[in-house]
Design a binder for these strands. Structure first.
Lengths: 127, 127
DNA sequence: ACATCAGGTATCGTCTAGGATACTGCAAGC
DNA sequence: GCTTGCAGTATCCTAGACGATACCTGATGT
């Protein structure tokens, strides 16, 4: 029995699963830590690697991940200045914990998509 | 190198990680599937077990998870009617893929919280 | 007759993550 | 002098997830 149920707001804040989940939910957080798995990357490289994230949102999420201790931000005051982001040990650890989910995603994505198609077909006009 | 980067919107939709991630992100989805791990539950039991979710939101998320094939909704037309939700094999599989993350959360939650405190202390008034 | 539980819908409001775009300061390259 | 790349800020806006509340249908209890 996993401790996911709560009876008060205070309890919800202390629930480890909910706490970490909230770090990791959102469209970009997991993608960012995965992008940093192999090596540290500079801001621009990270942005290019992810592809379709805006500068503002990437910055925002990087700040959040830094705040939670998953990565570090290092400024090398060149010139030109170069800012690089690297996973902390905690962040690398998180990536390990995330890998099963990643592999699973690769393996089962099509099942999910066809389930969705089936559901939509069944629930469109016919009730 | 994980396939997380994309160069077009179409590509983003085909990225397995992003696709599954979007199923699972949101405040409640993961909590719900975890709550169903041990046995099927009826709507009311599920709601009581989670504790602080409203009826509307729970219904909404259950529909979404059903649509994606993670759980089934079964109506037993009593009377009284009883609606029970159960994980599909796909859903049980997802739970397995999620477990490392859950265990990790339990183990590292405090590190994250103290990282956050440290960050906030360092970034509050002093820049 | 009235309240209660079950499993929802319907409405409304809020809040925030994310997207779009413009702008900055600094340097290097042509 | 102009553009380009880097690493951002500053604004504004939208969509949708979430919360609160009221209501509904049918059974069951007292």
């Amino acid at each position: 029995m996993l401790p996911i149920g709560v009876e008060s707001k205070a309890e919800a804040l202390n629930c480890p699963i909910r706490s970490v989940l909230s770090n990791v939910s959102g469209k970009w957080r997991i993608i960012i830590v995965l992008a940093l798995e192999d090596e540290p990357k500079r801001f621009g490289a990270l942005k290019r690697c992810i592809g379709d994230v805006t500068q503002r949102v990437l910055t925002e999420n990087l700040r959040g991940l830094e705040r939670d201790g998953y990565l570090t931000r290092t400024v090398d005051p060149g010139p030109p200045v170069a800012v690089s982001y690297a996973l902390t040990p905690l962040g690398q650890d998180l990536v390990e914990a995330l890998k099963p989910l990643v592999f699973w995603s690769n393996a089962h994505m099509e099942e999910v998509q066809s389930a969705r198609l089936g559901y939509d077909r069944a629930h469109r006009t016919a009730g």
